[in-house]
Amino acid sequence: MQPGSHITGLSALRTTIARLERRAAADRGATPLTFGLPRVDAALPAGGVMPGALHEAWGAGPQVEHGAAVALLAAGLLARGPGEVLWVLEQRDIYPPALAEVGLTPNRVVYVHARKPATVLLVMEEGLRHRGLAGVVGEFSGTLSLTASRRLQLAAERSGVTAFLLRRSRCFDDPVLREPSAAVTRWRVGTLPSLPPLAHAPETPGLGPALWRLELIRCRGGEAHSWIVEAFDATGRCRLVADLADRPAAPGADRPTAPEPRRALV
């Protein structure tokens, strides 16, 4: 064998691998699910949440139990594209009007009550193999093995269906969530005290849009970040608050140090 054939063989392999890896999103010409915030979208290699991939998200602190904000995040992102969504539940506690409020209307969602964590993964994989869907959302409270997450990621890649795995847990700082997984991005969403509904009259009572601390803990091909954003409104818009962007996510920093974030809106 000639010495040069190794090099050509290697580069051929590299192209094959690159093609295999990128096939999911790029070849199908699928558009990423963008936040509409240039700073957030620029931090994600696909220019938004990559379609045809597995994304994990969970609530910060005590919110990991109910995962209300992450459900809205997944619903709001999936509402940007067309198509139907399979929503796999472990407990039947979701309230569809809230999802409709961020744009995911009831005619687009099919709910599945899987009852057990293992069944959630099974149904999700079944859904991810189905090319006709826009997305699969699973609420999962068990331990996710690396193999199980890789299965979901592969199924999502092959069909181009976007998968959101919303992790729920009864304990606040569950070590299970720190275990490695094959998800392309992992998010932690916490809430912060919101801004007054009228900026010029801070004493006015009432509730403005909720404020989220959006932490990108892991991102394949990108870096960890943390932003403070306003929750999605009915049209799926959200706003970036303050200039806290581009700061890497500090592990364990769930609570804001300052009682109120700065009020500048970008």
């Binding site: 109910h66 904000a69 506690d93 809230a98 409020e101």
Partner: peptide, 10 residues
């Protein structure tokens, strides 16, 4: 559902 009303996710 009628829009604009605060409704819980859970």
């Amino acid at each position: 559902w009628p829009p604009g009303l605060p409704r819980p996710v859970r």
